[in-house]
Amino acid sequence: MRISSKQITLLVLLALIAVAPFFFPSSFYYRVGALVFINGLAVVGIVILTGYAGQISLGHAGFAGIGAYACALAPAHLGIHVGLAAILGALISAVIAYLVGRPILRLHGYYLGVASLGFGILVAMVLSNEGQLTGGPDGIAVNDLGLRSVLNDMGLSLTNSEFWYAFSGLTLVVGAWLALNLYNSPTGRAWRALHGSEVAARTVGVDVARLKLQAFVISAVYASIAGSLLALQNRFITPEVAGFMHSIEMVTMAVLGGVGSVLGAIFGAIILTVLPQALTVFAEHEMMVLGLVMMLVMIFMREGVVPTLLRFFRGRGE
């Protein structure tokens, strides 16, 4: 039987998660790895929105903020478990994405960019201004998920960083699997069709407004869960999670890796997560190098790193 590109992507991802720890010199790298997977999850959401459906969002960190603060606030105010709080956050994100998406997804290109940007900034502003509730700019503590001690009781003992490495890695695999299912499904085709030509998509019966909204809501849930994971792993969260720079980071990771492909998204997440960690050695030059990498990749690999490399090797193979 022929192996589909979906299976290849999932196998590569699983292999990466399993093999990488053998090269980790210290437990710190598990934390970086977990961060890569969490960012990767949010970026897979952007791939669905931007890569599949062709819609730009410069405010998706707003949903990450909602997911993160749901984990901080819901246990304290509603008395629910922090895990349930993450699910509640995803639901709230979906509802808000639905309400916000309906009006703004009628906009095109840069106009959609500025509208989504406005949404993200509003969320970040509420989180940092409503100090009595959210702890303000200094942030707020988050309860322990408790899953690690359950596993421990079952005889599987992991350090905290190992646990989060594995847990966020598996969540990413599930997220990637769902996104890959969508790509070749009727819905995914309709998204890619409206991405290619909105007017032609309409004439084959695609309800463009509804399809765009679906992509927006699904990608919002991805961002929300990524935000929740970030809060749960760090046991602490600040409004920066919802900030403009975080939104830009998500889009940049997606585009850098190659916005059409899930594997590209994860690759983009690796570059932009590991690079700043590596560059802390050159603290002085960190920003310059980061900016330079963003520019160079986009100038010389327009479609992103992964599609460009794939094309290169295919060209070689023939």
Binding site: T50, V251, H285, M287, G291, M294, M295, I299
Partner: peptide
């Protein structure tokens, strides 16, 4: 290059100039 790539180039330039 596509619009999103150009956005990222100019944001990259902004970060570079800032740094």
């Amino acid at each position: 290059a596509p619009v999103v790539s150009l956005i990222i180039i100019t944001i990259g330039a902004a970060i570079f100039i800032k740094g």
